[in-house]
């Protein structure tokens, strides 16, 4: 019996958590590009990068858990720093273009002001959450980061191709592509799932049409020749506003480009799905978040 070792660092989980796959609550049409019976891997023609490709990603970090006293009722809160940025890749150069860093204190306590750290010239802006639960606090931090990503993407509207790390969700950028590293939702019906296992590096599945909260074109792409097929697959999304012809053309272009950016296991703990430009961007963003130790000390000083 043969086996593969997952290329992701175990602490990140697995890119495909098979046990958790369940049928999508959204409805999926598999015959958007080809009929179900004709489903097979599509090898895309090689292309050159036309001008440039933009990658957008965000990072977040919890700096401190804090408690507020509200007339004897304790309230939880989280101080978190989030960052978002973009990388522009051309044929010869990859550079971080836009970055934004913000800090906020997330809590449901009322009457809370921003927390100032005068010694460091930093401020945690107050963000209200609906309750004290971990989910609500996490969601607030996540939303904060997503909003920063939106601000970054607003500066990239006229680009040729913008890849977002994660699903497109509410984003309707015409040039946008959603890039989903890990698969938690079973979008494909059982009769076409075997096609995934037949994908060779650089090959994609036909487009599917997802109808749910957001309308999406989507497809699967095998990035690299590492480990099992399952551990080198990503799912991509395009806005449904594109015509099917335009979507196919774009899917071919993106599928041909992305394997170039796939990372190697010894350099990246979530290889190959965490693309080099994104991992480089995350590294730079994390650096710009500032020292957590210093910030925590500042918070302790401010609380005294």
């Amino acid at each position: 019996m043969s086996f593969f070792v997952e290329t992701w660092d175990p602490s990140y989980g697995s890119p495909i958590e098979i046990n958790e796959l369940d049928s999508a609550s959204e409805s999926v049409k598999v015959d958007a590009e080809v009929a179900v019976e004709k489903w097979k891997p599509i090898s895309v023609p090689a292309v050159n990068l036309r001008s440039s490709i933009i990658f957008i990603d965000g990072v977040r970090r919890f700096d401190a858990h804090i408690w507020f006293e509200d007339e004897g009722h304790p309230h939880r809160g989280i101080c978190a720093t989030v960052g978002a940025g973009s990388v522009r890749c051309t044929a010869t150069k990859a550079e971080v273009e836009h970055t934004r860093i913000e800090r906020a204190v997330h809590t449901s306590a009322v009457g809370i002001a921003d927390i100032e750290l005068p010694r460091f010239g930093e401020t945690y802006k107050f963000k209200a959450t609906k309750d004290d639960s971990s989910e609500a606090l996490n969601m607030s931090v996540q939303n904060h980061m997503a909003r920063l990503e939106d601000l970054i993407s607003a500066e990239c509207e006229d680009e040729e191709l913008v890849v977002f790390d994660g699903p497109l969700q509410q984003r309707e950028l015409a040039c946008g592509v959603g890039y989903v590293k890990s698969q938690h939702v079973q979008y494909l019906p059982d009769d076409v799932v075997p096609v995934l296992g037949k994908l060779k590096p650089g090959e994609r599945t036909p487009l599917i049409d997802i109808e749910g909260r957001f309308l999406r074109w989507s497809w699967f792409l095998r990035l690299a020749d590492v480990g099992s097929v399952a551990s080198s697959i990503v799912r991509l999304e395009l806005p449904r506003s594109l015509s099917i012809e335009a979507a196919v053309e774009r899917a071919n272009y993106v599928s041909a480009l992305l394997p170039r950016y796939a990372s190697m296991a010894h350099k990246e703990s979530r290889a190959p799905q965490n693309l080099y430009p994104i991992s480089g961007l995350e590294r730079q963003l994390r650096r710009r978040l500032g020292s957590r130790d210093l910030l925590e000390r500042g918070l302790r000083l401010a609380s005294a």
Partner: peptide, 20 residues
């Protein structure tokens, strides 16, 4: 800056890995 491995220089000069 932003590179971790010696071979990152190839990624950087091919426009794949951002570095300064």
């Amino acid at each position: 800056e932003g590179a971790t491995f010696q071979s990152d220089v190839f990624l950087i000069s091919e426009g794949i890995l951002p570095a300064e």
